[in-house]
């Protein structure tokens, strides 16, 4: 597949700080590309340079095969952007908002189809100011689609939304993918990247520290899976699995956590417990996730609110 976006040696300097420090990556045509990193990692600076909002200090950006510096008008016609924390005019209806932004473009898509795509048929004549946060975000996404763009940039599209509204936005993004759009998604929610992304690029302090599919990242940088035996005599259970060569730990509340390198080990653990007649309430198996990948890569938590878990 061709590269929809090609970034080479991109740099952005603010005073003494290199907000984006010589990064290179490709976004393939038709994929959902997640740019994952904590706040202040350089995600938005990078994406805003690609969106033509910010001017890079150095490096090249090619979008749809064209150099951003030379063919900016060509590129602007073919991308759609939802900027971070975007709000539209309070006193236009949903439909008017789409028509307003559509007037800027040569290529235009059918507004009513767009309203259907973001599931807002019953809200199309509602004023923007009267919409909930989730609906406003969906209008923002629809605005990014008025020119039927080849590439859609969504900068933190679900930040500040409740779980239900977040799910609705995800549904819209999945719909874009199935329509063959290239989606460039920046987020600091690892779950969002896990659920939506074909390709994840992890950025930290202006540098790309890992890139791959979710599974690749977990396989390479995630720790082992863990078996958690709940409601047991931790001492007896620990002794029971020791012959398998497994180290276990317990916080002292009747739970025992056993890291296992291979998921096949689960059966061995359970039969060992059965053989030693260790009683327990339930067994949880924890897969490593991107949060853990990030923690392992940087020693830092991805998001403040999720850091405590």
């Amino acid at each position: 597949m061709a590269a929809a976006i090609q970034i080479r040696n991109l740099k952005k300097q603010y005073g003494d700080l290199w907000a984006v420090n010589n990064i290179s990556f490709d976004v393939k045509d038709g994929e959902v590309f997640a740019f994952l990193g904590p706040n202040g990692a350089g995600k938005t600076t990078t994406v805003e340079m690609i969106e033509t909002i910010r001017v890079p200090t150095g490096g090249t950006i090619r979008v749809l095969g064209k150099d951003l510096r030379k063919d900016v008008e060509f590129i602007k016609e073919r991308i759609g952007v939802l900027p971070q924390e975007f709000r539209s005019y309070d006193r236009l209806t949903v439909r008017e908002t789409l028509l307003y932004f559509q007037a800027f473009y040569r290529k235009r898509t059918d507004v009513d189809e767009l309203i259907a795509l973001v599931n807002m048929k019953d809200k199309k004549d509602e004023l923007y100011m009267n919409l909930s946060g989730g609906l406003k975000q969906r209008v923002g996404i629809a605005v990014a689609l008025v020119n039927d763009p080849d590439i859609v940039f969504l900068d933190e599209p679900t930040t500040g939304l409740d779980p239900r509204a977040r799910q609705d936005v995800w549904k819209v993004i999945r719909g874009l993918r199935s329509k063959g759009k290239t989606v460039f998604l920046t987020t600091h929610y690892m779950e969002e990247a896990e659920v939506l992304a074909d390709m994840v690029c992890v950025i930290h302090k202006g540098n790309i520290i890992a890139q791959g599919t979710v599974q690749e990242l977990i396989d390479r940088f995630g720790k082992s899976s863990r078996i958690i035996i709940r409601g047991c005599n931790a001492k007896r259970a620990s002794a029971a699995v020791a012959p398998l060569g497994l180290k276990s730990s317990s916080p002292g509340n009747g739970d025992l956590t056993i890291p296992v390198g291979d998921r096949e080990m689960v059966l061995d653990v359970l039969s060992a417990l059965k053989n030693k007649n260790v009683k327990y309430r339930q067994v949880d198996i924890r897969r490593p996730n991107l949060e853990e990948v990030f923690l392992n890569l940087t020693g830092e938590s991805l998001t403040e609110e999720e850091g405590g878990k």
């Binding site: 602007k76 016609e77 952007v81 900027p83 539209s88």
Partner: peptide, 13 residues
């Protein structure tokens, strides 16, 4: 502050 100006700069406007 609304992000409208940033949005405009990404369009052919």
């Amino acid at each position: 502050e609304m992000g409208l100006l940033r949005k405009f700069s990404t369009t052919p406007l």
